[in-house]
């Protein structure tokens, strides 16, 4: 149990996907301008990360490893993630249209989000068990959500702030990320 908790904390805070591993930066700078869209995006990413971790774990342990073709994992994982996103999108569109309106546009972007492929590769590299993979994906998703939410809150204010002209927009967002990263490095060593 404590092992799982360690994985969760490590993924969410110590090795935060955005600030430490730089995974999922496109949405970080793209949709972090508004809190609402940031939350929708991160919920979608978290969900797909957990689902993709489950699917790739099964494929890796029951197909790739038994047949000795682990080197095919990049191609396989990408195909799995792409089809998974398609299925989820179709399912949500059929069952809950209101939800589709909120998540739909983000789902399409997720296929090429490095956070999703990233977590599946980390699970494989660390040789996590099925449960550990799930916890790792959930932890990574929570960390992603947390940082995206903090960032969007700061950026909403930055829009109104009188920053130097050359700094406006992306550069000041990077500088803000520096500060956040420094703050998060304080979590190092707690696991």
């Amino acid at each position: 149990m404590s092992e799982l908790f360690t994985i969760f904390i490590s993924m969410a805070l110590v090795n935060n996907f955005i600030l430490v591993k730089f995974l999922g930066l496109c949405p970080f700078f793209g949709v972090s301008k508004k809190l609402g869209s940031a939350l929708s995006m991160s919920a979608a990413v978290t969900f797909v990360m957990v689902a993709a971790s489950a699917a790739t774990w099964l494929i890796n342990n029951y197909i790739l490893i038994p047949f000795g073709v682990e080197y095919m994992n990049i191609v396989m994982y990408i195909l799995i993630i792409a089809s998974l996103v398609q299925i989820i999108e179709l399912f949500i569109r059929r069952t809950n249209f209101a939800l589709y309106n909120v998540f739909g546009i983000y789902l399409a972007l997720i296929t090429t989000n490095c956070a999703v492929l990233g977590i599946t590769l980390i699970n494989t590299n660390e040789a996590f068990s099925f449960i550990e993979s799930m916890v790792a994906a959930l932890g990574a998703g929570v960390g992603f959500t947390l940082v995206l939410a903090i960032m969007s809150g700061i950026r909403e204010r930055l829009e109104l702030a009188d920053s130097p002209k050359a700094m406006k927009g992306l550069p000041i967002a990077f500088i803000t990320a520096t500060m956040l990263g420094l703050a998060f490095s304080g979590f190092g060593g707690i696991v």
Partner: peptide, 20 residues
């Protein structure tokens, strides 16, 4: 700091601002 992850954000942010 510069070889750590926050340093990466700092360098790229400052370079971008400089180029502008």
């Amino acid at each position: 700091l510069f070889v750590l992850s926050p340093g990466a954000f700092l360098v790229i942010g400052l370079l971008l601002a400089l180029f502008r």
